[in-house]
Amino acid sequence: MDKLLSRASALVGLGPACTPSITFSDESSRKRVTSYKDGQQVLVFTDKDPVAGEVTLKLDPGKRLEHMGVKIEFIGMIEMFYGNYHEFTNLVRDLDAPGELTQTKVYQFDFASVDKQYDSYNGINVKLRYFLRVTVARQYSPNVVFEQDIWVKNVQTMPEINNSIKMEVGIEDCLHIEFEYNRSKYHLKDVVIGKIYFLLVRLKIKHMEIEIRKRESTGSGSDLYNESETITKFEIMDGAPVRGESVPVRLFLSGFDLTPTYRNVNNKFSVKYYLNLVLVDEEDRRYFKQQEITLWRKEL
């Protein structure tokens, strides 16, 4: 809203134009990711990284600007697509006392130990953003507001307990299989290694595949809303095995658009991942077993 107005006022020539921008102090050495917004590149931060830099208020020569103070905010926000905003972090630094700006001015800012425990996330129904907002307050005119997103990724420690997943499933007198995935927790560049043992096969199986499924849950209680998405289908077997056969699984996760598993982020949403083993028979009936896996980030 503020932003729209400021643009409009600039267009009609109302009030002197001032163009804020932000540069980060370690910009050149930071990784970038492509933002969900406009396909722009945004910088990547982790939890402990200081967010510091300069705010430049650019003023055209000969113009002047009266203001009621300049501030910068660091905001962490969860946006629901049904229009609910929730700020879980908001830090403010005042950059300038009310006064008059006669030329381009540069302010230092530093959010040295701001808490960024959540990862940035851009899902189907929910979005978790971190951004800096510069506000030049004015008395009679709309404030000049400028926002700059950053992308937060956190590296996690290797889980201490990481058991394999092993399970026997089946339909009585029809199909019995035992499957085994080497771990229950995988990092994002990991490989799922596994094996499917066929203990009893009375179906005419055509093929078998593994799906990676992602479930995004928002809200809670009666408002709980789940959205599932199949990230990939990966065929692991062609044809019909017989009893006693075993089929290897090797699925590289690195090629897919995955995030770590998020559980109950700020009580607002969760993102979970599942491996879904699907057997398809000759009549195209599908038999499946879904198993949750935990994804974590090992490195940026």
Binding site: M237, D238, G239, A240, P241, E245, S246, V247, P248, R250
Partner: peptide
């Protein structure tokens, strides 16, 4: 040789 087990269809295998 191990990965090839994935093809259980006799002819294709």
């Amino acid at each position: 040789v191990e990965m090839c087990r994935g093809v259980q269809h006799p002819m294709r295998g």
